[in-house]
Amino acid sequence: MNPMLQLDEVTLARQERVIAQGVTIRVNPGETVAILGANGTGKSTLLATMAGCLQPQSGRVMLAGQPLQHYQTRALARVRAYIPQMQSMHLGWRVKDFIALGRYPHAANDWLPGRPADEQAVFQAAAATGVTDWLDRPLQNLSGGQRQRVYLAQILAQEAPLLLLDEPTTYLDWHGQITFMQTLNNVCATQGLTLVTVLHDLNLAIQFCRRVIVLAPERGIVADGPASNVLTPLFVRDVFGITVHRHTHPDSGHTFLIPAFESPADAMQPLVLHQSGLQDMPNAH
């Protein structure tokens, strides 16, 4: 089987600055992969390189069996969809029209009303992400979580087999994070899509992604494998600098992690240092 995405000995670089070397990854069709790591370890750079936004300094990126640079931009967008880290600027768009922008790579003529296939793709994407009720509303009337689902609908309308998402849950509240990941998971499972997403929340990664790739500063990829196997307390302490307890989720049977505090007092008063600092200041109260 041809891998959906393959990186061979890639050197990741952003503006001439090398971020990681010797990156080799192989993602098969239908896999769901989370990229984890602390800030500044090159997660976004890795994802942008996979998307073709950034050129690797050396090495080779293959997409659906072809070298990335052989694709025309439009043809590339029919194979992979990419949501960079969110900036919410384009709020005047009506949800329906915004999702329809995802049809650009397929459109024969961008000035004409959509063909039936285009409209169907838009409505299907809206139904899959649960945004059908808001199709005629402007984006600015939606909450952050709802908007994020509209973005997802847009790239689903793109009908690309590979989805690349950069921190899709970052600005969402808890409800938004969970429902977004559930929607994403359902869509990928039912449509057989391949997913590579950057996440910060280790538990979301364990819960929703079969496989995790972990980046560490200066060291590049330090782990690549099933989430439950990779994210051991020892490993998390080594890479993220946090002591965690590992438990088993009563519903899913997956492991989940909770931060450990050295003593109960620390857990109760995480701001101890800060408070003692305040007391040193005159007129703090």
């Binding site: 998307a51 439009r74 969809a81 990419y82 790579p105 790239i155």
Partner: peptide, 21 residues
């Protein structure tokens, strides 16, 4: 170029992701 400019006003990376050179 209006349809491409439509994408471009969303930001370079999003536009590129949607297939705009």
């Amino acid at each position: 170029f209006a349809p491409r400019l439509n994408l471009l006003q969303l930001g370079d990376e999003l536009a590129f992701g949607l297939g705009c050179n």
